[in-house]
Amino acid sequence: MGSLTVVIRQGADGRFAQVCRDSLVNCTPELEQIIEMPDDTRPGGVWTRISTPFVAFIDETVAVCPGWAGRMIASLIRSGAAAIGPLTNGADGAQHQAGDYQDISGFLDFADRIAQDRAGRTQSVEALDPCCVLYSRDRLTGIGLDAAPNDLPAFVHDAGLCLAVALDTYVHSFASYYAQARPEVVAMIPATASRILDVGCGTGTLGGRLKTERRIEVIGVEMDPTAAEAAGRVLDRVHRADVETLVLPYPAGSFDAIIMADILEHLRDPWGLLARLSPLLSSEGRLIASLPNVRHWSVVRGLLEGEWTYLPAGILDRTHLRFFTRRSGQALIESAGLCVIGTEPIRSAGPPDLAALVEACRGLLLDVSTLVDEASVAQYLYLAAPR
């Protein structure tokens, strides 16, 4: 009999639900049962179905790694806390840990390094992100647990019980898929910009940040209905539509900046869209675009081994229709009559020593002079201006 019950919190966007469930089943030998619960319900009735000494509430956007539950249970017992959370890319504060990986195997390697480097370490905290929290049933006895899942960690803390973070456990959150602040993109927007078009704005996190920092108008375009609804609460206007068929009601020169972060690779015809949008830039306007780098080592390695496996997120995201290198990405943007005036690489974990591979390629008369540098680049940011 297992010692752990996992309650999966189901949200409106179920695109990562199967990845979450598969990771739990494959990586949790302590698992006794899985209970699925809509995110907007209270867990009061759920507790009556749980007989295990430990229970974890996990968003369906979270993927776990081998050993996660065992480490968190051990840390919970050792710390004397009533609830404990992991490190994750999807949280703020003490739980935040940026990941330098691009695929599932990279995530697992990254999580394993954290487990080894920080074995047994915990930290007491005042709050926990509700995306993944493990509770001790014994320590919660008698406090009337009927708070909504998002409020449950705070409810436990307000009852005088302790919270902690397992610093040796890392889980990946796909929740940031539509909610990325992208400070490196924000840094490229001209300080004088007063009106911005954010294509593929997601939940409006980037534009919302801009509006808190500057006097600026931000107009978004987003196809996902849930994300568009959220963006509509923070941006000045949101067009909920497929940008490839949308006719925007703005004259030429309407925008000081157009942001296309993580969008062009999803399109059927990014060349055509860029050609239609570039005239909307003012004479001093700027286009800021980001594109995954298909020359990253994680992809090159797979090709050399005969693999091209689509994933829930990353460079080989299964929703990506187009793939670019640094040079072909620049050619894409310049095909719309723009001039690329800056390129910034966003790097992840570096590749192994590629000296032998480079030498073999040179023996085949291949130009691989930039391979070593570009193999660590997960994504390129392009800054472009009208010609």
Rank of each mutant, 00 (worst) to 15 (best):
C131H: 13
C132K: 05
V133L: 07
L134T: 05
L134G: 11
Y135D: 03
Y135A: 02
Y135G: 03
Y135P: 01
S136F: 06
R137H: 00
R137K: 07
D138F: 00
D138K: 04
R139H: 06
L140E: 03
T141S: 12
T141P: 01
G142Y: 01
L145Y: 06
D146E: 10
D146Y: 10
A147H: 09
P149V: 01
N150H: 11
N150Q: 11
D151Y: 10
P153K: 00
A154H: 03
F155C: 10
V156N: 05
V156P: 03
V156S: 02
H157A: 14
H157T: 02
H157S: 11
D158Q: 15
G160M: 05
V165K: 08
V165G: 01
A166G: 12
T169E: 09
T169C: 13
Y170Q: 05
Y170T: 08
V171A: 02
H172M: 09
H172P: 07
F174Q: 01
F174T: 04
A175T: 14
Y177C: 04
Y177I: 13
Y178M: 09
A179V: 03
A179K: 10
R182N: 08
P183T: 08
V186H: 00
V186K: 00
V186D: 06
M188K: 06
I189T: 00
P190Y: 12
A191K: 13
S194D: 08
I196V: 14
D198K: 05
V199G: 01
V199I: 13
V199K: 05
G200R: 04
G200P: 07
C201Q: 09
T203G: 10
T203S: 12
G204I: 03
G204Q: 04
T205F: 07
T205E: 10
T205W: 06
T205P: 00
T205A: 11
L206H: 01
L206I: 05
L206A: 03
G207K: 04
R209Q: 05
L210S: 09
K211E: 03
T212I: 01
E213Y: 06
E213L: 06
E213P: 01
E213N: 06
E213D: 11
E213M: 02
E217K: 14
V218F: 11
V218C: 11
I219V: 15
I219E: 10
V221W: 08
V221Q: 07
M223V: 12
M223Q: 08
D224N: 15
D224M: 13
P225C: 12
T226V: 15
E229N: 13
A231L: 14
A231P: 15
G232M: 15
R233H: 15
L235G: 12
L235A: 14
L235W: 13
L235I: 14
D236I: 14
D236G: 15
D236H: 15
D236N: 15
R237W: 14
R237G: 07
V238A: 04
A241C: 06
A241M: 00
A241K: 10
D242H: 00
D242Q: 02
V243F: 04
E244V: 00
L246H: 08
V247T: 12
V247G: 09
L248M: 09
P249E: 13
Y250Q: 03
P251S: 08
P251Y: 09
P251M: 07
A252I: 01
A252N: 07
G253S: 02
